[in-house]
């Protein structure tokens, strides 16, 4: 079975500490001023009736990736496990993909190419977890293969209430948020 990599973020456990962001920056040598993942702290309501949701967000590695369709050079592509990658040497930095991405998950690297989350595919291929998942002190990040019904991510999605961001775009995002 071809793997279908996905990430499941448990918003109940996340404390928005940004350890994931820094671990990613260190692992992937993300240049100063940029990041591949980020935190959204959403607080709703009026004092004192409030609710909060913390989300560690990143590229959704969509099933129908508009960035890939928009890329004129073929730099943005779908790699193993449905992971969306950008091949640096093919990218001209035209930003068509940035305009197409509903999640604002891409940026132009100072070296000229577009850059984004890779689900740490270089680690995953070695059987390791993405850096953000490995570091997370709250264990709120889960990475795995949705094509395997026994994987942790499959089980979490089968047993918990979840949502994805911007489902209306039809991109079929693969980052899921547990409520």
């Amino acid at each position: 079975m071809t793997p279908r990599y996905a990430m499941v973020v448990d918003t109940r456990r996340c404390v928005a500490c940004k350890a994931c962001v820094l671990a990613c920056k260190a692992e992937n040598q993300v240049p100063d001023g940029f990041c591949r993942d980020w935190l959204v702290e959403e607080v709703r309501g009026r004092f004192p009736n409030l609710s909060a949701e913390n989300r560690s967000e990143r590229c959704n590695h969509c099933g129908h990736p508009p960035c890939v369709s928009a890329c004129p050079t073929g730099a943005s592509h779908v790699a193993e496990g449905g992971v969306v990658l950008v091949t640096h040497h093919k990218c001209t930095g035209c930003k068509a993909c940035i305009a197409a991405c509903p999640y604002d998950s891409r940026y132009v690297h100072p070296e000229g190419h577009v850059d984004k989350c890779t689900f740490c595919l270089h680690r995953v291929q070695e059987g390791r977890q993405p850096a953000c998942v490995e570091v997370c002190p709250t264990e709120c990040l889960h990475f795995g293969d949705l094509s395997d019904p026994d994987s942790e991510v499959s089980r979490l999605l089968a047993t918990r209430t979840w949502k994805v961001l911007h489902p209306e775009t039809g991109c079929e995002p693969n980052v899921y948020f547990l409520k």
Binding site: G74, S76, H77, A79, E80, K90, Q125
Partner: peptide, 10 residues
Amino acid sequence: WFGLDGDPVD
């Protein structure tokens, strides 16, 4: 979108 001239995983 699968880029025929090789897409290495960096």
